[in-house]
Amino acid sequence: MAQIYEILITAFLVISGVFGFVGSYGLIKLDNPMSRLHAPTKATTLGVGGVLIASILYTLMSEGRLSMHELLITLFLLLTAPITANFIAKMHIHRHETPESLPKVGEDQSWATLAPEKHKPEAE
C-alpha cells in the first residue's frame, strides 16, 4: 500500500513541476499579450494543484488522516485566479487596444468595459 502511495505522490510531484515550469516559460515564449495571459493559468491550476494533492496524499500516508489545509489553499487560489486574469485582460484592453482593433461583438453595441457609463450609482 505504501508503495502505491509513493508512486502516486511522485507522479503528482513530477507533473506539477513540469506544469509549473511550462507556465513560467510560456510567459517568456509566447508573443501575444493575451496568449501570455493563458500560460500561467496552467501553473496555478495544475502546478499548485498537483503539489497540494501530493501533500494531501503524503499526510494520508504518513499520519493516516486527511489534511484540510490544502483544500483551503486550493479553494482560495481557484477563486482568485479568474478575478486576477479579468483585471489583467481589462488593463490590456484599456491600454493597448482601440474599439476598432478589438474583435467584433455579437449582439451588443460594444465591449462592456469600453461602453460609456449610462448611470452612476448615487451614493458613493
Binding site: 511522485t10 510531484l13 513541476g17 509549473g20 515550469f21 507556465g23 516559460y25
Partner: peptide
C-alpha cells in the same frame, strides 16, 4: 521528486 519539482518551480 520533491527536489525535481522544487527545481522546476525555482527556475520558473
Amino acid at each position: 521528486a520533491i527536489q525535481f519539482a522544487s527545481a522546476c518551480f525555482g527556475i520558473g
